[in-house]
Simulated assay, not measured.
Amino acid sequence: MRIRSLAALSITAIAALSLAGCTGSSEPDASPSAEVSDLCSAAVASGDASNAVSVSGDFGSMPEDVTFETPLDIADLESTIVTEGTGEAVSAGDFVSYGIAVYNSETGELVDSVGYEEGSFLPQQVSPQAAFGQIFGCAPIGTRAVATFPATDSSAAGVYVIDALEIVPTAAWGEEQTPADGFPTVVLDDDGAPTITIPDTDAPTDVELDTLKLGDGPVVESGDTVLVQYTGVQWSDGTVFDSSWESGTPTSFVTTQVVPGFQQALEGQTVGSQVLVVIPPEFGYGEASEDNTNALAGETLVFVVDILGTQHAVTE
């Protein structure tokens, strides 16, 4: 397995960049554009650099041709709308999937692309301070934009063609399945947050899985980075010990960096699915001992996990 190329790392990084980061400033930008609460007002202006880029090809697919006079002088983050979408307007806090193609501002050559194939890029949360919010503002889904990024200490200047593909739900959307007998019961509130009730039986000694909703998205593979919602309770008393729902937003992590039982609940599942998993101590945090004082040691754990996105690991 290898680390994704520098260009693709830059692609991922722009989701979290502020305007100050894009301009290469070492100090936070105190301008109103860095502090706006209204997503529509967050959109940066077009300019000579972004307006100089010509794009052809269908929205939702890799651009067929991206041309501009080289070298292109890029001093500021600029954004020009190429195609105005007709879909749902994006709001701050939404998770949006994107297709992105990056071009060298010195040569005009394609450097890298991501997001046009399923499982290649996680949905990104939109905010007025993040680069995607500043590129699109509250433009609707279906919008294609050209963004010109100036050089920073860690990346070269670049021309980005970005398609806002869809708003991704923050709860599993798959087809409901008939729950298996003997498992904890799950009731969802209006937002999709689960309440888990433990049955009056002994805890299982092996990892047990039940798919509550079956999604139609890409399959989660070992080593993927996933975007999920989850709630975890203890079998012993039903106490909630961790929940992304309670923290207020989905979270992401690599499947190989969680306890083995949780990893089994993710890998092989499809995006859009909701999975119930029961994890005995052997596949969780182990048995309690003098050397293992984790608060969850010795506990059988129950998770309900909504799988919202996956980004496959890049291999040689």
Rank of each mutant, 00 (worst) to 15 (best):
R2E: 13
R4V: 11
S5L: 06
S5F: 03
L6D: 12
A7I: 09
S10H: 15
S10R: 14
S10Y: 11
T12W: 09
S18G: 15
C22P: 03
C22Y: 03
S26K: 05
E27Y: 11
E35Y: 13
S37K: 14
L39D: 07
C40V: 06
S41D: 06
A43H: 11
A45D: 13
A49L: 04
S54I: 15
M62A: 07
P63N: 13
E64M: 04
F68L: 06
T70K: 15
L72P: 05
I74D: 02
E78C: 15
S79T: 15
S79I: 15
T80H: 13
G93E: 02
V96A: 01
Y98P: 01
G99K: 05
N104D: 12
T107R: 10
G108L: 11
L110A: 14
G115R: 02
L122K: 00
P123I: 01
F132P: 05
Q134W: 02
I135C: 06
F136N: 01
A147V: 07
T148L: 12
P150A: 10
A157T: 03
V161N: 09
I167W: 00
T170C: 00
T170G: 00
A171T: 00
A172H: 07
E175K: 14
E176I: 13
G182T: 06
G182R: 13
V187C: 02
V187L: 08
D189L: 02
D191T: 08
T195R: 02
A203I: 11
D210M: 13
K213F: 07
K213S: 03
G215E: 00
G215I: 05
E221F: 10
S222M: 11
G223T: 06
V226L: 03
L227E: 02
Q229N: 10
Q229E: 14
D237K: 05
D242H: 13
S243A: 07
S243T: 07
T249P: 00
T249R: 09
T251I: 10
F253Q: 07
V254P: 04
V254R: 09
V254W: 03
T255P: 07
V259F: 13
A265F: 02
A265M: 04
V277H: 04
V277E: 01
F283D: 05
G284A: 15
G284N: 08
G286L: 08
E290T: 03
E290V: 03
T293N: 04
V302Y: 06
V305F: 01
I307Y: 00
G309N: 01
H312N: 14
A313G: 05
E316R: 08
